[in-house]
């Protein structure tokens, strides 16, 4: 192989990995929120709507106040409100989580486009002040790594920090422990003198905040200040799937999100190479999600069976 084709391959590989990090970030952010509700024992189907409302809030406030930072702050505040709203129904009023989630998604589609049309006279927002890409001084000069890691929007790097922070929060702090207990065994937690409902409220609010951030990243970071009705494109559901793949462990969930990002990036590469129809390549991440889902569930069952058999053998030996 000659010099030229090698450098070609390297360019394609680095741009694929770069795109992987970009695509994984909104999913990973939402999934970080989703794993909190998963730990608290709430099935959260409504993340798609939460992301959409976060994206709209960020874009709208950023346009109105001409500041991307204020847009992000607004999306966080709004995320808290959405989390409270979600918890009011799922925790306080004990409604069906599935119904509330579905309704939240439709509600998000309705309210965002309604407000966008009555405030800005169009179904979408464009040219909101957005976040600029950061190029990291020393790393950007490293040949391969530089073009992969450097030059993303702020949220991509924040997400890495959040993954570690959330891991510490879930597995190394008392509140994280209580939240996990509130999902696994609420009665035990109550006996231990803690209120499981309160833990569920906290988890739900955290989920709202992370979904709000994911939305802010989509509109202000990823799309350079745009909002559109269909921009979330099922990422909330993919995030939910990632939570299940990763067993609600932040690090594993992030790995699952990266995997989704990788296939998304491959799809985009194939699309730009014009070998395959763009409609077919766009379907790749969704098909992969189904396959991963099946794999995770089946391997989990196998593992449980194996453990059960081992236990049985031990009993027989005795």
């Amino acid at each position: 192989m000659n010099e030229n084709s090698w450098s070609n391959i390297l360019t394609v590989a680095s741009s694929t990995l770069n795109q992987m990090l970009r695509s994984a970030t909104p999913v990973a952010l939402a999934a970080l929120g989703g794993l909190m509700t998963e730990h608290a024992g709430i099935m959260n189907i409504g993340m798609d709507g939460m992301i959409l409302m976060g994206a709209f809030t960020a874009a709208a406030v950023s346009t109105a106040l001409m500041s991307a930072a204020l847009g992000i702050v607004a999306s966080v505040i709004f995320g808290i409100l959405v989390g409270l709203f979600f918890a009011l129904f799922t925790v306080k009023l004990r409604s069906d989580e599935f119904i509330i989630g579905c309704a939240l998604n439709t509600f998000a589609m309705g309210i965002t486009v309604y407000l966008s049309r009555s405030l800005f006279d169009s179904a979408g927002i464009s040219n909101a002040p957005h976040l600029h890409n950061i190029s990291i001084p020393l790393i950007r000069n490293i040949p391969f790594l530089g073009s992969v890691v450097s030059g993303h929007s702020l949220f991509v790097y924040l997400t890495w920090a959040f993954v570690i922070l959330m891991w510490l929060f879930v597995y190394r702090t008392p509140v994280g422990f209580w939240i996990r207990a509130s999902g696994e065994s609420p009665e035990t937690l109550r006996t231990a003198g803690r209120n499981p409902e309160r833990m569920k409220w906290i988890a739900s609010i955290l989920c709202g905040v992370f979904c709000g951030l994911a939305g802010a990243h989509l509109s202000l970071g990823n799309l350079n200040g745009q909002f559109g009705q269909r921009m979330v494109a099922g990422r909330g559901y993919i995030a939910f799937a990632c939570v299940i793949f990763g067993g609600a462990n932040p690090v594993k969930v992030f790995a699952a999100a990266l995997m989704f990002g990788f296939f998304d990036a491959i799809g985009l590469q194939l699309q730009s190479s014009k070998l395959v129809d763009p409609d077919l390549t766009s379907a790749i991440p969704y098909v992969i999600t189904i396959i991963m889902m099946v794999y995770v569930v089946v391997s989990g069952q196998r593992r449980r069976e194996r453990i059960a058999k081992q236990q049985l053998k031990k009993l027989e030996l005795k």
């Binding site: 129904f89 309705g110 309604y114």
Partner: peptide
């Protein structure tokens, strides 16, 4: 000239009310 999306808002509001009704009644 009202955006048609108001329909979705009303529809989901009905669902939220119906879903919350059980909880309110229990409370």
């Amino acid at each position: 000239g009202v955006p048609i999306q108001i329909y979705w808002i009303i529809q989901t509001a009905v669902i939220f009310c119906m879903a919350g009704e059980k909880g309110v009644r229990a409370a």
